[in-house]
Amino acid sequence: MAKYKIVHYINNFFSGAGGEEAAGMRPEVHEGAMGPGLALLEAFGEDYEIAATVVCGDNYFGENLEDATAELLSMIEPFKPDLFIAGPAFNAGRYGVACGTICKAVEKELGIPVLTGMYEENPGVDMFRKDLIVIKTKNSAAGMRKAVPVFKNLGEKLVKGEEILGPDIEGYLERGIRVNYFAEKRGSERAIELLVKKCRGEECPTEYPMPKFDRVEPTAPVTDMAHTKIAIVTSGGIVPQGNPDHIESSSATKYGIYSIAGMERMDKKDFMTVHGGYDRAFVTEDPNLVIPLDVLREMEKEGVIGELADYFITTTGTGTATGNAKAFGEDFVGKLKEDGIGAVILTST
């Protein structure tokens, strides 16, 4: 039987090239295992081989993220590995970011399972925990011995496509992913038991911790509205008749950009709403209730605002994952910038 192939990523320090003085080294590829890879190789046993070790200086990686990633990918790809392991980076911040970045890229570009490991306070953890399985390690290389069997166990499961269990059981850092399971008792009974404990002042652990939503500093105000170009964005689910891009009526996974060039108002002949979260009867009759095109056109003529962008951006808000909404935003802000948009009116139902 052919052995499963692993490619391993390590930094300048663990390759033996040196510390800070070698941190600028460019990507290199070495056949076989080296440094911490030797311990991994031994643990994985005879069905596995470390086909190659790729090395990059932490500073070079950090200063040339895209180039370093591309170079490394081109070195890894020819080995056709079954598994990619980076680090572990322990508490080395730059190394952690490098491990996370290259793992994410390998998973996306080569479509193979990836694994890395870090100490939980490594800044790379928060950047990548949702995307990757990050094995929990101690804060220094002294923790390697303990980490090795965890790499082996998870690596094997990933290669064989077996189910990965919870973070505490498997030994990786909690990823913040909500996964379904069947509990022993139904929800109402569990809730009542928790409430009785809560009333007694006993510990009553929540099944869903409240998230901490992040915040953005308010931008400076618009100083010259009469010369500002405004764009309309909505989560009200307004789309052209027939919903050409099939935007979902709930839990949207996409958004649309549609023209309003030359239109004086939102005509019900042209637009409809697919929003599944409210009684659509009113908006179906008059889409201006969500996209106030009629009054914005007036204001444009009156010179109250400079100009209205000749399109609007739209999606369905109800049940739409915050991650998706964020991704939509990140995706379309480039266009807003490019088109010289000076202010946005975002409407929600």
Partner: peptide, 9 residues
């Protein structure tokens, strides 16, 4: 995301 790139919203 809009505010993050400096466009008032």
């Amino acid at each position: 995301e809009i505010e993050r790139v400096g466009i008032p919203v």
